[in-house]
Design a protein around this nucleic acid. Structure first.
Lengths: 353, 353
DNA sequence: GTGAAAGCGCTAACAT
DNA sequence: ATGTTAGCGCTTTCAC
């Protein structure tokens, strides 16, 4: 193994062109000092003569030299990268496309940047959330934010038990070992349902796959609203396990319209689902909000401009990023972070006045 | 400096709890072999006895041990991380929120994952796109994808000149040293405009900040459509430098409606802008599409469900990620990558039939 | 104030 | 088939 300084020939992997990377030894040679001095100078140490320091800094700057962070991190045992995991549905080969998740990613990116952390965006199979730990075990990231609990509360608990710093966007569940941050799903579901009931709707359908904790909680609210209004729980045929992906949901919505099940209100678990429900209803000659009132969830930017403008439950996207990151930073500081449920609120528009 | 094996006490930075990380030496000790053997075993080398290999792999697996990638990369001089840069507007403190950009991020994430690369998502000031090079110079990433050219074609050229593997989502410009991938903006602008002209519209406004190359190209198409129809170029008061951010654009759209400038068609540079234009028009008593036909850009998922459903130029989001990544991989292999312009197509809906 | 040398966790000659 | 050793690019004692 030869000692090389500059131009180390074709590198073994993934960099075939001869892109020689400048390193500290090069700067040292050019400045006529030792690497140790360069290291000190660049870190702003006062141990090095003020003018040499200045000179070295100038030199490095003018050559666009940046300290190799891989090496630095190895030596310093530090790392400022956080993993953000967006699960995908392996069955449907579904990509990251839900606008709400994408917004959350944006808000996390902002929050991490504000704190000087880098964000490694990673996708994992939603059936194998525990694969996220590989990011941590391999030292790539110092902590992980997972977007959504999916069907694997258990796996998340296991991850947390391994004492990996972990924060999950999702609902607060009993016996939860990990820190979650999420909107108040139960309250959101309750508000949406209560709103429809107040408007005199009698038979309200719920659209969402309750295998997902967030959806489960929303249905809890849906049921609670009925109880609070002195009504019996709605029959099973009104509780429809519709998935989030419009394509997969479509036949189910169609079936709901043609099956003869009577309903005059719908609580959907996303705006996209809501608007597709509207389409299906109208295709079958039923008016919205006349015959059926429809409430969405998320309050996406375009929800106000849909036809009809969507009544929906607003989720605090910006706050989401801030809170997720704040919680993770707490964990990184060795402080226990408690689950946090963020308030949500109804936005009443035309689809369910 | 002491030699430590497990439990190395409170680490100096950013990891305060005593999260001891397992390392190869630990596995070696437990397996009663040397680190070299462990290294070989885990890499699946046939140089090591088949059953020892098996045993070591089992052991590592059962302990959730993953090779420290920082150290491995340093040693191997490899890196499989790609930087994706989403610029933000420092003036307006605008966050990543444009739904189209967010979709692109999703599609890039998918494409990178497919090729086994990690994605480091990073934000930089859109006035200092050259800051992106720091990611590369510091060795964090082996190449960079920047989303949008913004106002700094020049900076992008400089980055490419430093021979950093770089691909930019945006328009193809003259004297371009970097590889760009983008929708056919000129054609998109032309199609949108031609569509309105064919429908008999006479005075068509263009909404977009032409300081951005993509927008500039779209306006080229807008002008060309006029020429092709044998019409003189539209007057300056019809070419409105509206920014992408709805809040910033709003007063400008208002002003357009009240200024007395006559127009019966609008080509907007995003769906969001288009729908806000519709709102402004209606607020001032003008109907869409009756009095004014409005065409958007991007074809976001909800565009079909707006009121009115948006006629718009569809951008190939999925292909965008694929192509951006393909181009970057080419560069990483030392192959010159040519700019690529992806076809776009009109989707005709109610806002401009 | 500066340099020599050790070592962060890993891999790959070079030994045996 | 396995161990010993040098070194990836950096920081930091320890000597001068």
């Amino acid at each position: 193994m030869r000692k090389t300084s500059l131009a180390q020939g074709p590198t073994p992997a993934s960099e075939s062109t001869d892109r020689k990377r400048l390193q500290m030894a090069d700067i040292a040679r050019l400045a006529g000092v030792s690497v140790a001095t360069v290291s000190r100078a660049l870190s702003g140490s006062t141990l090095v003569n003020a003018e040499t320091r200045e000179r070295i800094q100038q030199l490095a700057q003018s050559l666009n030299y940046s300290i190799n962070l891989g090496a630095q991190n190895l030596r310093l045992q530090k790392n400022l990268t956080v993993g953000v995991v967006v699960p995908y549905d392996a069955q449907s080969r579904q990509h990251i496309s839900d606008p709400f998740f994408l917004s959350i990613i944006g808000s996390i990116a902002d929050a991490l940047t504000d704190h000087g952390y880098d964000m490694l965006l990673s996708r994992v199979d939603s059936e194998r959330l525990d694969a996220a730990s590989q990011l941590y075990d391999s030292g790539k990231v110092i902590g992980v934010i997972i977007i959504g609990q999916w069907r694997h509360h258990d796996q998340l608990n296991q991850l947390a038990a391994r004492n990996m710093p972990l924060v999950v966007w999702g609902g607060e569940l009993p016996q939860q070992l990990y820190c979650s941050v999420g909107g108040d799903n139960r309250n959101g579901g309750e508000q949406a349902t209560a709103h429809l009931l107040r408007a005199g709707r009698k038979r309200i359908a719920f659209l969402g796959d309750t295998a997902l904790p967030e959806v489960w909680l929303r249905r809890e609210g849906y049921l609670r609203a009925h109880t609070a209004a002195g009504l019996p729980p709605p029959p099973p045929e009104l509780q429809i396990p519709a998935p989030f992906e419009p394509d997969a949901a479509h036949p189910i919505l169609e079936h709901l319209c043609t099956s003869g099940v009577a309903f005059d209100g719908v609580v959907a678990c996303s705006d996209l689902l809501a608007i597709h429900m509207v389409q299906a209803l109208r295709a079958h000659g039923r008016s919205v909000p006349g015959d059926v009132g429809v409430v969405g969830y998320d309050d996406m930017p375009l929800a106000a401009f849909c036809e009809p403008a969507l009544t929906t439950v607003h989720q605090p996207v910006l706050e989401a990023g801030t809170e997720l990151v704040a919680a993770l930073l707490q964990l990184l500081n060795g402080v226990r972070a408690l689950p946090r449920t963020l308030p949500v609120h109804m936005v009443v528009r035309a689809s369910a006045p």
